[in-house]
C-alpha cells in the first residue's frame, strides 16, 4: 500500500534520512521505533508531504505521491496525526472533527462518521462544544486521532500518541489504534513506548541515525538482543 524507496530527506542543509526504504501492506499495523533524533517523525512528515525529498520515491497504491502537496496527499487517503497535534485550538471539538472530514462533501457521510467517532470516543461527545485548546493533554490526543479518522483514511500515520500521557490514557489510545486495524485501516505508528508497541504491532522497523537498521515481525524484533539491550533495558 505504501512504499518508500531510498528516501533522502531533511531540513535545509541538515540531512536526516539516509536511503530509507520500507513498505506497509494493507491491513497491517507497522511500528517504526528508534531513539530520539533518529528521524522517525521526519519520516512521517516526509510521507505527509510537509518535507520535500532530496531523492527517492514514495508510492501510495502504486502511485507516486512525493511530488504532491500536503492537502492532496491527505485527500488521497493518508491521514497524519502529528506529534504537535495541530488542532484548531479556537474551535469546538465538533468543529475540529467536521473539519477533519473537509474532503468529504457529503453531509450525511460526515454525520455518520461523526456518530461512529463519538461511539468510539464517548469522552469527545461529552465535550463536543468545548474549545479544543481548553482540553487536557489526553483528550487533545484523542481528538487529534479522531480528527484524523474523520476523513475515512486508508492509511493513518500516527506520531508518538503516548507522549506525555498517563498510563491508563496511553492504554486507551493504544486500544483505539488496535480497533482501527480491526476496522481495516492500515496504521504506521511511531512510538517511544517500545515494549507495548512491539506487543500489538504486526511488523516493525528500527530506525537509528536516519537509517533502517533492522526489520521484521514484531515478535522477532522484540526478541532481538540489540533491541532488548537498547530499548527495553532487559
Amino acid at each position: 500500500m505504501l512504499e518508500l524507496k531510498n528516501i533522502n530527506a531533511g531540513y535545509d542543509f541538515l540531512q536526516v534520512l539516509w536511503d530509507v526504504s520500507f513498505r506497509v501492506d494493507e491491513g497491517e499495523l507497522v511500528a517504526l521505533i528508534g531513539p530520539n533524533g533518529a528521524g522517525k517523525s521526519t519520516t512521517l512528515r516526509t510521507i505527509a508531504g510537509l518535507i520535500k525529498l532530496k531523492s527517492g520515491e514514495i508510492l501510495f497504491n502504486e502511485k507516486v505521491i512525493n511530488d504532491k502537496p500536503t492537502h492532496l496527499i491527505s485527500q488521497m487517503g493518508i491521514s497524519y496525526v502529528s506529534e504537535k497535534l495541530n488542532l484548531f485550538t479556537g474551535m469546538s471539538v465538533r468543529e475540529n472533527l467536521i473539519l477533519g472530514a473537509y474532503a468529504i462533501r457529503d453531509k450525511e457521510v460526515q454525520l455518520e462518521t461523526l456518530a461512529y467517532i463519538f461511539e468510539l470516543f464517548p469522552r469527545l461527545e461529552e465535550r463536543k462544544d468545548q474549545l479544543a485548546g481548553t482540553m487536557s493533554g489526553g483528550e487533545r490526543k484523542m481528538l487529534a486521532i479522531a480528527r484524523g479518522m474523520m476523513s475515512k483514511p486508508q492509511l493513518m500515520l500516527v506520531d508518538e500518541p503516548s507522549l506525555g500521557l498517563q498510563p491508563n490514557l496511553t492504554q486507551d489510545v493504544f486500544s483505539a489504534l488496535i480497533q482501527l486495524r480491526e476496522r481495516g485501516v492500515t496504521v504506521l505508528l511511531v512510538e517511544q513506548n517500545v515494549n507495548a508497541t512491539l506487543s500489538f504491532s504486526d511488523r516493525a522497523y528500527v530506525l537509528e541515525q536516519g537509517k533502517i537498521v533492522m526489520e521484521g515481525p514484531s515478535k522477532e524484533i522484540k526478541a532481538n538482543k540489540h533491541v532488548r539491550n537498547a530499548y527495553l533495558g532487559i
Binding site: 502537496p69 492537502h71 495541530n86 484548531f88
Partner: peptide, 24 residues
C-alpha cells in the same frame, strides 16, 4: 459554511489545515 470554516482553520493552524486536506 465549509469554506468559511476552512478560512478560520488556516488562521488557527496552517499545518493542521493542510493535513485535513485544505488547499492553503
Amino acid at each position: 459554511t465549509r469554506v468559511g470554516r476552512a478560512i478560520r482553520a488556516v488562521s488557527q493552524d496552517e499545518t493542521g489545515a493542510q493535513l485535513v486536506g485544505i488547499n492553503l
